[in-house]
Amino acid sequence: MIHSIIDAHIHFDQYSESARSTILKDLQAYKVEALISVSTNLASSQRNLALAEMDQRIKPAFGFHPEQELPGDWELSQMCSFLDEHKNQMVAVGEVGLPYYLRIEHPDIQVEPYIEILDVFVKQASKLNKPIILHAVYDDAPVVCDLLEKHSVTKAHFHWFKGDAKTIQRMIQNGYYISVTPDCLYETEIQQLIKEYSLDKLMVETDGPWPFEGPFKNMVTHPKMIHRSIQLIAEIKKVPVEKVYVDIYGNTKTFYGL
């Protein structure tokens, strides 16, 4: 039997209108209570705000995704103003972070300007007393931890996290949350992370419309997939699946103040 759950990280504004309609119609049947819909830039933030105004199950987060060209001064200023203006409508600042994959494709890209932009968003999260949703994997994660500690931001959610054991322990000690995607069903690295990370700081996500392999190959990414993630977490943690449902649902509600 499935229980209520929340998709802790989805780019809902990036789906087609028909796909969004289908997903919203399905949510009740699959007991998906809410979608934390993250943004990639100012236009994306505006779309997510509009979607949230249409359906209260969509919980928007506003930010600038790092795996793209840096925003200009005007867009960054407008983004900060948008966060201030709509702080009561948003559940978090995000998605923000550092461009790990972009730098693999373009090794000449300098990371320092991205760190400066991230510093702005971390300060915004602190000022507005909002959680922050982070794209920070492998070698970037310690840099982000430094920024969070610098600004005393503790409500941090590292989505689809990957990193070394030392950083994982640092994040656990700091009380940061992570979330795993449906790739946990076939990625041993993510399965190991589930073993190591505390259940009371764990959430589940789809990162849709990002596509997956394994049992989800050639399928449109749908929040219903996270039920499979819950079942696997229960197997890995060797605890009843009902407990995993209750704990992860509670973690997400508490973290996002839902």
Results as ranks from 00 to 15, higher is better:
Ile6His: 07
Phe12Met: 05
Arg20Ala: 10
Tyr30Glu: 12
Ala34Gly: 11
Ser39Lys: 03
Ser44Lys: 05
Arg47Val: 05
Leu51Lys: 02
Gln56Phe: 02
Arg57Leu: 13
Lys59Val: 13
Phe62Glu: 04
His65Ala: 12
His65Ile: 10
Gly72His: 03
Leu76Phe: 12
Glu85Val: 11
His86Phe: 11
Val91Thr: 08
Val93Thr: 08
Gly94Asp: 14
Ile104Met: 09
Ile109Met: 10
Tyr114Met: 09
Glu116Arg: 13
Leu118Asn: 00
Leu118His: 01
Phe121Trp: 08
Asn129Tyr: 03
Pro131Val: 09
Asp139Thr: 06
Asp140Cys: 11
Lys150Met: 07
His151Asn: 07
Ala156Tyr: 00
Phe161Gln: 12
Asp164Asn: 10
Asp164Glu: 12
Asn174His: 14
Tyr176Leu: 02
Ile178Trp: 00
Ser179Arg: 07
Val180Phe: 06
Gln192Ile: 01
Ile194Asp: 12
Val204Gly: 06
Glu205Gln: 02
Asp207His: 13
Phe216Ala: 03
Met219Pro: 02
Met225His: 04
Arg228Trp: 12
Leu232Thr: 01
Glu235Asp: 15
Val239Ile: 14
Val239Pro: 11
Val241Leu: 00
Lys243His: 08
Lys243Phe: 07
Asp247Cys: 03
Gly250Ile: 02
Lys253Trp: 06
Gly257Lys: 14
Leu258Asn: 02
